[in-house]
């Protein structure tokens, strides 16, 4: 299998702070790949670099063989990378359905076709019954689901999920894990996720990258990574294992 996303020696500095420090990794097509690490490790910055929110200070990124560098967020999305935000950004005054239609309209020019696509996605994420509600009236877990639904509706090849489990109850987490796994299995969609909830990471990811102070300190299958002494010391804590 070939690498869908290739990140090579990518760095990002904010004034004196090195937020992302020469990080390299490859996400194989069809994989579920998790990025973990303590707060401030540079995970979201890494996502923002991939999504085109700001330029890198070195290194290279390719998606399906084409360079990603220098693209704007909308261009990145049209290439087939959809992302969610850690701090959710629904369109507050729009209905749940209309939020997702906006996503679906990226590939579909016709609003009716986009609506049926939106309904499909809303059913997958258990939001169909709430489709007429204003997005601003949703609870946080529902907003997280909406964020995922909207990104999914764009029909991406690669889905970037920034802490979509945070704030969910264990049963809701399990449900989200099941949904993501099903999407990955059924459509072969590649998923790259930032996650703190280790329960979800262990259940979902086939591959884990650990960031600490902006640098990659470990990488591999989840079972191996959680036993890595460096990871235990910097992130998981001794008592976890």
């Amino acid at each position: 299998m070939s690498a869908l996303l290739k990140v090579e020696g990518v760095s990002k500095r904010f004034r004196g702070l090195v937020a992302v420090d020469r990080v390299s990794f490859e996400v194989v097509e069809g994989a579920i790949f998790a990025v973990i690490g303590p707060n401030g490790a540079g995970k979201t910055t890494l996502f923002n670099l991939i999504a085109g929110d700001f330029p890198t200070d070195g290194g290279a990124m390719t998606f399906a063989g084409d360079p990603l560098d220098g693209l704007t967020p909308d261009q990145v999305c049209r290439r087939g990378i959809a992302r969610t935000y850690q701090i959710v950004r629904p369109f507050p005054a729009l209905s749940v359905e209309d939020n997702v239609i906006v996503g679906a309209l990226m590939r579909l020019a016709d609003v009716d076709a986009a609506r049926s696509r939106a309904h499909e996605v809303l059913r997958q994420l258990d939001l169909y019954d709430k489709r007429q509600r204003r997005a601003s009236s949703l609870t946080l877990p529902d907003r997280k689901r909406l964020e995922v639904a909207r990104a999914l509706a764009t029909g991406p090849k690669l889905l970037l999920l920034d802490e979509v489990m945070a704030g969910l109850r264990p049963t809701e987490t399990d449900r989200m894990v099941a949904v993501l796994r099903e999407i990955n299995r059924a459509t072969g969609m590649t998923i790259l996720l930032i996650e703190h909830v280790m329960r979800a990471v262990m259940a979902l990811a086939s591959h884990v990258l650990v960031l600490h102070h902006g640098a990659a300190i470990a990488e591999g299958p989840p079972e191996a990574v959680v036993r890595d002494p460096a990871v235990i010391e910097s992130y998981l804590g001794v008592e976890t294992v």
């Binding site: 999504a51 967020p73 999305c77 906006v102 996503g103 990226m106 609003v111 986009a114």
Partner: peptide
Amino acid sequence: ARSRLGYQWVAIREDQRAAMALGIDV
């Protein structure tokens, strides 16, 4: 208002960054 463009407009009105992340050429 019922066209693709109309949806793009309200998305931009509501949250420009999120609109961009959904592939809209703002």
